[in-house]
Design a protein around this nucleic acid. Structure first.
Length: 490
RNA sequence: CGGGGUGUGGCGCAGACUGGUAGCGCACUCGCUUGGGGUGCGAGUGGUCGCCGGUUCAAAUCCGGCCACCCCGACCA
């Protein structure tokens, strides 16, 4: 689908309902979240897009630090040989590596890989820092960029270079590492659902979808507006795969040499795309107040200069009250634009609350308030200028909840149970998404492969609490071991 | 790497078949007008027509070669 190019300077964005892919591109460009760069597959994060990342990152950083992990920074370049030490890891990442072969005008003795992820270099350092059980657990987090040479890219969702947070921990016991993996998974779930207002399905990945080098991978999966799933974050239980490859060992309290047990986990700038695709509508972006760089915009309306003075004075008083209450607000004083144009412009940019102040309002001591989480006449109401900060503050809280509720309702409406393979296949074969399919599965990779080949749907998550024993595999009819969610994904 | 498509002001396109002074809409600048849901009018700025070569008095247009980008697949957060 989506052959129609983005109509960047036409007045309206492509309606979401008409062409989801074109709509998504339009929004990212026109709301000035990002722009294409001269380098294929790389994007520029513009201030309004980067502000979302900053808000998200600051909150996530706080939550991660609360678990005891500390931030560090490891080099961008990794000796090529490091990537080759762990068998599955090489196999998984080799095709998508960017490799530096020259430096200072000379060919390097050993090529350097631009990190696709930092397990290897971190293990190399861990092996030098960890000597005793008293050094454990070691829990580090890094905010950085990584590069993966993907064949096909999409703004925010898949770019050659992306920003992320990668946590890496080493523990004395298997149990402790497994507990850490699940604890971070829950931290991710809460963060994405509460802060980004994106409802999720949580679970374990199938072997085919596992991180290269992990023993077990866990995931949080969202459902986008077009019915396709998006992996929003993953946590990995690495077992001793990397510690054995890098000899990351310690002496336990019995004076025995042991390999550490490890985890890694990450979330990326893909989440910006998830916000756009989960909450956006035909008018454009709808930002959760938590990440909106402008939470409330005041549009002054007047005709004559003398009205302007009165209206602007009222607008500035309101702005002061909002700012004092900790609300990120601004006045749209642009000249030569009609109020109607500004309304549409701010709606397209996803600002949660709009405040209209005109001469009639000032006279009545009121303002018209429009909320972005609703549409039509219900979105507008009147509020007293005297208590504007309280009103807006309450609305921002409600917006956060209502965006989540709307997305949750959409996800539930788009999640179906299937017990007949033919029916499932027919459902999934249609254009676009198809939502989540909740099915019994025998756990055999062959059945998973058949689903992928015939329907393009993949196993997104296997819930942690499983009633798989109760049913028969959707594909082969054998006794099921899993009850899993399948979907077409980004 | 396979299949399809497109390259003409910042963006979206027409012009090409039938060679002859490069055009339209949006955006941008200036002026007036308008202003409670994408105001209207006027005047402007801006282009070696993807690149190289050929045919011709003359090439955006015809011929040959190359390059780039986009979409659909395989790979992936």
């Amino acid at each position: 689908m989506a052959e129609k190019p983005a109509k960047q300077n036409d007045k309206k964005v492509t309606p979401r309902s008409e062409d989801f892919a074109a709509w998504y591109n339009d929004i990212c460009l026109r709301a000035e979240l990002a722009d294409y760069s001269p380098v294929r597959g790389c994007i520029v994060f513009r201030p309004d897009g980067f502000a979302i990342w900053e808000a998200l990152r600051d909150e996530l950083d706080k939550r991660i630090k609360k678990t005891g992990a500390r931030n560090a920074y490891f080099p961008l370049f990794i000796p090529q040989s490091f990537l080759q030490k762990e068998a599955q890891h090489v196999e998984g990442f080799a095709p998508e590596l960017a490799v530096v072969t020259h430096g200072g005008g000379k060919e390097l003795e050993e090529p350097l890989v631009v990190r696709p992820t930092s397990e290897t270099i971190i293990n190399h350092m861990f092996s030098q820092w960890i000597r005793s059980h008293r050094d454990l657990p070691m829990m580090l987090n890094q905010w950085c960029n990584v590069v993966r040479w993907e064949m096909r890219t999409r703004m925010f969702l898949r770019t050659t270079e992306f920003l992320w947070q990668e946590g890496h921990t080493a523990h004395a016991s298997r149990e402790e590492a497994e507990a850490e993996t699940l604890m971070i998974l829950e931290l991710y779930r809460k963060f994405v659902e509460e802060f980004l207002a994106i409802p999720l399905i949580v679970g374990r990945k199938s072997a085919a979808e596992r991180f290269p080098g992990a023993v077990e991978t866990y995931t949080i999966e969202g459902l986008m507006g077009d019915g396709r799933a998006l992996q929003c974050g993953t946590t990995h239980f690495l077992g001793q795969n990397f510690s054995k490859a890098f000899e990351t060992r310690y002496l336990d309290d019995q004076n025995q040499m042991q390999f550490v047990w490890q985890t890694s986990w990450g979330m990326t700038t893909r989440l910006i795309g998830a916000i756009v695709m989960t909450h956006g509508d035909d008018q454009g972006l709808r930002l959760p107040p938590t990440v909106a760089s402008t939470q409330a915009v005041i549009v002054p309306i007047f005709r004559k200069p003398e009205e302007g003075a009165t209206v602007l004075a009222a607008a500035r008083t309101a702005l002061e009250a909002l700012t004092k209450a900790g609300i990120r607000a601004r006045i749209d004083e642009r000249e030569g634009m009609t109020p109607g144009f500004k309304f549409n412009d701010w709606e397209m940019r996803g600002v949660p609350v709009r405040i209209e102040i005109g001469p009639r309002d000032v006279a009545a001591g009121e303002a018209v308030i429009a909320r972005r989480d609703k549409s039509g006449p219900e979105s507008k109401s009147k509020a007293s200028l005297a208590t504007i900060a309280d009103t807006v503050s309450a609305l921002l809280g409600e917006t956060q909840k209502s965006l989540y509720a709307q997305a949750k309702a959409a996800m539930i409406a788009n999640t179906r149970n299937f017990d007949d393979y033919a029916v499932f296949r027919k459902h999934m074969e249609g254009e676009g998404g198809g939502g989540f399919a909740n099915v019994y599965w025998c756990g055999n990779p062959a059945c998973e492969t058949r689903i992928r080949e015939e329907t393009k749907a993949t196993c997104r998550a296997i819930p942690l609490t499983n009633d798989g024993i109760a049913g028969k595999c959707l594909v082969c009819g054998e006794s099921a071991t899993e009850r899993a969610y399948f979907a077409k994904s980004y």
